[in-house]
Design a protein around this nucleic acid. Structure first.
Lengths: 149, 149
DNA sequence: CAACATATAATGTTATAACATATATTTACG
DNA sequence: CGTAAATATATGTTATAACATTATATGTTG
């Protein structure tokens, strides 16, 4: 639906202004969906994000810094996020022997199993976004990549 | 820059999957900019959003519910957001005489003045997004509107 | 090697988000 | 009219985000 209608605003100053609002609004729309789905697994989107990064490294460990860099939301408190996942048994943390400042974080079998189940999310996501074609999604991806410079 | 490079991920399963991540990432990118700029005025993006809605109604009042509906982030706690703006002297709140459950909220002169200053943000935003053309912004807007159904 | 700088993670603190519940008022209905 | 349902907002509570600070280990340099 046209953004103007959804937030009941008559018009935008220009397409850039609308785009900024559109990204915020669409993110909120997408995030609500994700929160709702992940809630069944007692995970937040950020925790899910971390688990996926860790799966990408498995069975090699990742450090807290590495997680911070790769996370979508840069400002987040990776150290305590990891701790919450550890309490849930989804990751292990031990200290690196070569550099004892570092923590080595590895996703557990239990964490991998949950991610496996959650892979169905990708299918549902495609359904959620099915109002547009792969080609249209591709166009948006290209333009957003270009926009951020 | 290509999203794959920015978050150091080799590839995405498909364009829909990348699009979801791209929206989250681009939102975070945009939000950081907004937080940084609004911080000089001691405002959060949500408070800024509310002030702009109120300006749209001025000099007519808005209710808390109306703000909730029109806000970009639907889940937010409009009642306390308004209270924070009231403490800063940017809005007035009084009770509606016809329906004493309702609050009537009006932006103050001081609030309007701050918004005036902040209108330069729109110019800076255009600069921030200037990697793409108006036409490309328009394309993204159309596709996102279509995607949300 | 000592002293200082840097890197990495954990912790402290405050404000806010998210969710549930409470309060007050109005509306609906038998 | 009196009671129940619905509506509008405010408040309580808990977890988290955001930012600053601390703790510990490693690197660098004179």
């Amino acid at each position: 639906m046209k953004l103007e209608k959804e937030i009941q605003q008559k018009e935008f100053k220009n397409e850039f202004h609308k785009l900024a609002v559109n990204i915020i609004y669409t993110h909120s729309w997408l995030n609500s969906y994700q929160v709702k789905t992940l809630n069944e697994y007692n995970l937040t989107p950020q925790q899910y994000n971390i688990l996926r990064i860790l799966r990408g490294y498995h069975p090699k460990p990742a450090t807290v810094n590495l997680l911070k860099e790769r996370m979508l939301d840069k400002m987040s408190d990776a150290s305590r996020l990891v701790e919450r996942l550890r309490v849930k048994g989804l990751v292990n943390r031990k200290y690196c022997e070569k550099d004892r400042r570092r923590a080595e974080i590895i996703i557990t079998e239990s964490g991998l199993r949950i991610l496996d189940e959650l892979d169905r999310l990708d299918k549902e996501l495609e359904k959620l976004l099915s109002g547009i074609s792969q080609n249209e999604a591709h166009q948006v991806n290209n333009i957003l990549d270009k926009m951020r410079g």
